[in-house]
Simulated scan of single mutants.
Amino acid sequence: MDCRLGCGACCIAPSITSALPGMPNGKLAGQRCVNLDDDNLCLLFGLPTRPLVCAVFTADAEVCGQTQQQAMTIIASLELSTLANVVEEG
């Protein structure tokens, strides 16, 4: 699956704990990455400064769904289940 142009769900919905350009402490779930432009396009795409966590993400129908809203919902749900697992294990 190719990314939907202008979706940006993977840059908004999940938390990212590693440093990002312009976000040295990472970002919270639901927080928009500062490297997204107004059209939800990554300003770092193809640049060596693009973080590895972003570069290794690949679009997948199970994660991205059929629409941007579905992607936001699925990724947010995955984020919550990951958090629940951390709380249970901790």
Results as ranks from 00 to 15, higher is better:
74 I>S: 03
45 F>A: 04
45 F>Y: 09
30 G>F: 07
13 A>S: 15
28 L>H: 02
65 G>W: 01
12 I>V: 15
82 T>A: 15
57 F>H: 13
27 K>D: 05
88 E>S: 10
23 M>T: 14
51 P>M: 14
82 T>C: 04
7 C>E: 06
21 P>Q: 14
11 C>A: 12
29 A>S: 13
81 S>V: 15
23 M>I: 12
74 I>E: 05
25 N>L: 14
78 L>G: 15
61 A>R: 10
62 E>P: 00
47 L>C: 00
46 G>W: 07
27 K>P: 02
62 E>C: 01
36 L>W: 13
38 D>M: 07
90 G>D: 04
77 S>W: 13
25 N>A: 13
60 D>C: 03
28 L>T: 13
50 R>K: 11
52 L>C: 09
46 G>K: 06
85 N>R: 15
44 L>E: 06
79 E>L: 08
36 L>S: 13
36 L>Q: 14
66 Q>N: 09
5 L>G: 06
86 V>A: 09
67 T>F: 00
1 M>A: 09
67 T>S: 07
6 G>P: 01
29 A>I: 12
27 K>V: 11
66 Q>M: 04
83 L>V: 14
10 C>Y: 06
55 A>H: 05
62 E>H: 04
86 V>F: 02
61 A>E: 12
21 P>I: 15
46 G>F: 10
55 A>Y: 05
3 C>S: 02
29 A>C: 04
89 E>A: 13
89 E>L: 08
20 L>A: 06
37 D>M: 12
16 I>S: 05
38 D>G: 14
28 L>K: 10
44 L>P: 02
39 D>A: 12
56 V>G: 01
43 L>S: 10
83 L>F: 08
58 T>V: 12
9 A>M: 08
69 Q>K: 11
11 C>K: 06
49 T>A: 08
64 C>H: 02
14 P>F: 04
82 T>G: 05
13 A>D: 06
57 F>T: 11
65 G>L: 02
42 C>R: 01
65 G>Y: 03
64 C>A: 11
87 V>L: 10
